[in-house]
Amino acid sequence: MDAALQMTLARATATTERRPVQVALIAAGVLFLVFFLLLPLAVVFGEAFSRGWLAYASAIWEPDALAALRLTLLTAAVAVPLNVAFGLAASWAIAKFNFRGRSLLITLIDLPFSVSPVISGLIYVLVFGMQGWLGPWLEAHDIKIIFAVPGIILATVFVTFPFVARELIPLMEQQGTEEEEAAVVLGASGWRTFWSVTLPNVKWGVLYGVLLCNARAMGEFGAVSVVSGHIRGLTNTLPLHIEILYNEYQFVGAFATASLLACLALVTLALKSFLEWRLRDEIAAVGH
């Protein structure tokens, strides 16, 4: 390494800007956060409580709102475990093995990230709708998919497809296959290896993926809106219910429900921060 480069490196601290520039940049960042994140959140809660606690409580304790909450929780309760099972299987296959079609599988997993949620919904209308491919058959057997709960769950599973797998693939790749190889050499079966070696190594990653997946499952609007049919008390999830209330000039109700959804998101966010912190320890411990 030549002397000039060494001198440059020695002088190079993380920042070389003058102090006023640093302050201005930090202030810009903080202002942005306040105006685009904190303020809207404060407005949601402000509007929700603008007519007091009683109006807030009665907006949430209302049959259609409760039905929407139940459907949202049910959707998440089905979509998240499905995605955990799938995500674990896919990331295990992708990270621990080399096979033909591996990169195709990765691309397919990423597909829901790159497709607009509206398209994700329309796909199901085109396949399961009355005029769609399977529509006549489904109708003949009296099976309802779209404009009913199964469609909402399907659309949600689709848009949350990549969350767990995307979380686990880099983690598993980083961990390599040495521990699994050791287990196999010591005579463990495939299942045993998975349960005793692979899964414990990634458990925090799985939880982290579950939280991300859950947040999206509860908050999804676009895809669900297309397949829902918007039947009150039956196929409205919380985000759809919020839109309906807002459009009916029931602003307290809309924002009260929005604050409920925001609270669910905040809990998820807090858990996520906690896990991020735990995950770092875990990776450090496992890695080396």
Partner: peptide, 18 residues
């Protein structure tokens, strides 16, 4: 039970099986 939306959109939903 009620479902509301733009009239054309609602018709489309009924055609698609709502």
């Amino acid at each position: 039970r009620q479902s509301h939306g733009g009239s054309g959109k609602q018709a489309r939903s009924v055609i698609d099986g709502l």
